[in-house]
């Protein structure tokens, strides 16, 4: 076997990994077209110890969002991950928050004013569809898994070295 054949033999199963990486990069960067027309969404969001109602909001990319933010018990806050929007509201007062949903994915809104023991865990979820990051992550997992299994299938004849002293097949 000459050097070239040796190189081909060595690289052969590893091409699977390279293909997997290329496919993963493709999936992570492939542009997903907008399929819904932007709308204006009016949402009433109430904060109380230690939850938001509604606790999950679905909108679409490009939507104009107008949130009427209220508090039922004590002073609460609103901070939207990824968008950096902040607000503070006192009981009996309605605060209006407006923004355009330009980024897709799941973004947590949190209470930003210390409101009691579970304040750091007072969380709601805004899902801006299509939820690209989630579906890309799922695709990444499947591609990774498929690549690994294919690689293992192609190298199944390779003897496996037990890396630690004393370990042996049961």
């Amino acid at each position: 076997m000459n050097r070239f054949q040796q190189l081909v033999r060595w690289t052969y199963p590893r091409w699977v990994i390279l293909m997997g990486i290329i496919l993963a990069i493709g999936v992570m960067t492939f542009p997903i077209p907008q399929i819904t027309d932007p709308q204006t969404r009016y949402i009433t969001l109430d904060a109380r110890q230690f939850e938001f109602a509604p606790h999950r909001i679905h909108i679409n990319k490009g939507d104009r969002v107008i949130i009427n933010f209220t508090a039922s018990d004590v002073v609460h806050g609103f901070y939207l991950d990824g968008y950096g929007i902040q607000a503070r509201v006192e009981p009996g007062v309605t605060k209006q928050i407006e923004f355009s949903a330009e980024r897709t994915g799941k973004f947590r809104y949190r209470c930003s004013v210390s409101c009691g023991s579970l304040h750091p865990f007072m969380i709601g979820e805004l899902v801006v569809g299509p939820n690209e990051p989630f579906w890309r992550a799922i695709a990444l997992v499947i591609i990774g898994l498929f690549t690994l299994l294919t690689y293992r299938f192609l190298t199944k004849g390779t003897s496996y070295e037990y890396p630690t002293l004393g370990a042996s097949p049961a």
Partner: peptide, 23 residues
Amino acid sequence: PFGSALIPFLQTGILTTGMLFAV
């Protein structure tokens, strides 16, 4: 919050790595 837009990507990366290592 620090890097709140980055957290989902870090979570995806670390979970995928852990899953592949586990498999």
